[in-house]
Design a protein around this nucleic acid. Sequence first.
DNA 1: TAGCAGTCAATATC
DNA 2: GATATTGACTGCTA
Length: 920
Amino acid sequence: MYSLQCCSSSETHNSSSNGYLLFSFFKQIMLAFVSLTCPPPSLIAPNSPVGVRGSRVKEQLSQYSISQRLFGESVLGLSQGSVSDLLARPKPWHMLTQKGREPFIRMKIFLEDENAVHKLVASQYKIAPEKLMRTGGYSGSSQSALKNTVAKMMTPTSMPATSPAMSVGGNSTGGMDLSPNSLAHSAMALHGLRGPASALASLTHGTGMDLNSSLSGRTSPIPTGLTYGATLAHFMSAQSSLNQRNLASHMAQQHQHQQQLHQSPVLVKSEKNSGSASVSKSLSGTQLGGHNNNTTSNGMTPSPMDDNSTPSAGHGLSGSGIPTLAYSLPAHSVYELAALTQELDTQGMTTKIKEVLLANNIGQKIFGEAVLGLSQGSVSELLSKPKPWHMLSIKGREPFIRMQLWLSDPRSIEHIQRLKTERREAGKRRRDLGFPMSAADTAGPNSNASSNTNSFMGGDNSSNDGSMGGSPSPYSGNASHHQATSLTTGAGASLSSSSPSPAKKQRILFSDQQKEALKLAFSLDPYPSTSVMEFLGQELNLSTRTITNWFHNHRMRLKQQQSNAVDCPAKEEISSSASPAAMANGGRESSGQIDPMHFRLLFHQRLFEMQVAAGEDASGHHAATGGSGSGGHHPGAGAGGINLPASLAGLPPQLAGNLNMMASLGMPYPFYATGMLSQFCMGLGNPSPDMAPGAEGLDLTLARQRVAALAQSDSEAEESDCESDTSSRTGPTTTHRRDGRAPAKMASPLMTAMASAKTTGGNHLSMSSQEEPAAQAARSSRRSRKPAAPQWVNPHWQQNSATRERDRLESEDGRDSSEERDKKKAKLLSSRFHHSVDANLNNFVETDAKTAGGRSSAEDDKYDNDEDEDDEEDEPASNKFNHRHVSPSRRSSPSPSPSSDEDKMDDESEAKDDDNNEHS
DNA sequence: TAGCAGTCAATATC
DNA sequence: GATATTGACTGCTA
């Protein structure tokens, strides 16, 4: 078959280049795609596979990060929607009109070009899509290109930055040269650079040329351009190796090399030398330009035009003496490297970076600004929680590439040290001159140091006014980003000091109750619907946007946690089920049915639990009552440090205690779950029939009555018990804040909102049983969406068994009738609900799925198994009380339920809280 | 339009 | 002062 031939032929390249691996895969994808339409043999080789499922093709497209939009616009001349349509509903060839066949013909042409995918990927980050449509020969000989580029690389001369030859999209033949080499070369040329990326591309073609060896023995002064090329060559050589251990050795070699070169002052001299000035200047200028006002998302992705625009901003190394740095590669090239690097031990790299930073007393802040173009916080996250390489998009890989380059740079430490010194001196000068020390000063004083700073990463000093005060990074110049940046001008004038800086935007700080509520809601449904978000917003007195942000952040951070855990080979099993993909897809198989009453009750439960736990902790230290709300952490309104919501705080202690008592007495879960509990507590009568066990939705009519009663009770409680503890009701955050600023706006946790909910109508949330099947199906569809953002995915990881299993289930779902699917989902949801609740409430309640009415059949063995496993792990109820620790086995449970992870986070959070309590 | 990746920067914590 | 945390945001995707 053609596809197989393609595969095998491509595989000759694959051994040395993951870029071509990608290419090969994508080719197959596209062949499958084309074959799907049953084109004639004239277009596609005979015996093309027929019947490849469209969903599979789409999956593959997604898998290899070729966006439909890019592919459509660049190759097919179609919009993303059209591509999507083609993929989803391909027509037989004979049914296509001439026009309809055109995309397939384009695909054919595309497929015949071995460089096409690579170019496409590369272009995704820089090259204008329309230029991909140009016809013309691709340049192409890797070998010759290698020779040329390496030869050029070794020549410390460079093209003028404005050389026509550099213009992306054009070559001498008039056609667009989109080969990897030429793409990279174009990008490099735009920066007055030559060849490294091209050399990389060439190296990955298996030339085997070891530039390391050519450099290792070098003792003579190295011109900047050569250093640059050499550094890149080191990187490339390291990265082109499929064995990560080689990278380590390369890095070690680099450091050894660095030690040697560090002794050579000639290097600096040579770097200052005008002989390499064009390269240096171009580098600094273009890097600067890459991070000036034209920067894109993070200031690291200058467009070619941007690069050209600021080659001589006047702060290059020539003025500062800061040499050109290899890691200040243009984003294009970094992307190239990222795309072509199959594997990188991000953990190892960050460890190494941290060691180096620590050893040299280099802060994350200056490192981030000078090397990565990121803020301190981002650096902190990168270093402390690096994502596995395969989970990173190309853009996400960029910092790691820069780290690698930085590690490979023999002068890296010196650069940073010098920068530190100059900053310090500049700040001192400013203070001496009477200028107030602004936040910008701490990051990049408006002086030579500032320009030096920029020279590291290539940011142009022109521009962006920052003003957020405190934004230190000249490279955070994400013009499109909401945060303004605090930049300094090239002339040395401080915009941040000359322009009024608006007040700092205060960040909302969630109170503990809000956090708990959100976590609980998350455990119930990591993907709540809009209405649920609104409900939560009302309940917690937060904006829906804030709720949305929290859920998103929480998902992302859980995923990151998972990925870090999964990165360990020993936890392969986890990776197969609790992988980020599982989080992204399987994780969505959540209930989506946060029932208001469930939520409230569980929340009360949780708060009470916290109170008890905190009370136990604090019993020896604090008086149990009358939290002053001032100064202490968790100034509990009751027995402990935890601040109960008014709803629960307002209840007589014995009633609140009944929540736990019932559990300890072994009352069945449904009793809690269906509203009877609240009636029990409130003495409001018998449960309504629709709150019988198994009822998914709740009639809030009665609940609203109780809400009113509770609100009344709450109100009374506020007037009596809690009047002296206003701060506690506003949440511990208040007392956490050193500056006394208002915390998150949770005036009356839950109950006040509950009271208001009766007017806003919380019953819209009881949609689980009332929702129209169509709406449920729609949501179901939404929940099976794939991640939208591009991911540079490791195929092996991507195609884990969990994914396949999920696909299988989904496909089975697809065959089910909607009713059956809904039933199945309901069962799953029920199961997951109890799972989540169990985990989140520390196994407080003995789960009994059957009595909960969630599942009665033997369907979904998968979930049965999960549940069984958990049941086995369940501790006796008596032991569960007040114990939120999740056993290791539970943590490593293959269950993709977010609750386990939530527990993990909860545990950590609790550990912190405990720690805080201890501190207090 | 929802969700994801990446990031900033305010704030907390060490 | 350095680092970690986290709410908020942009840009992109399906």
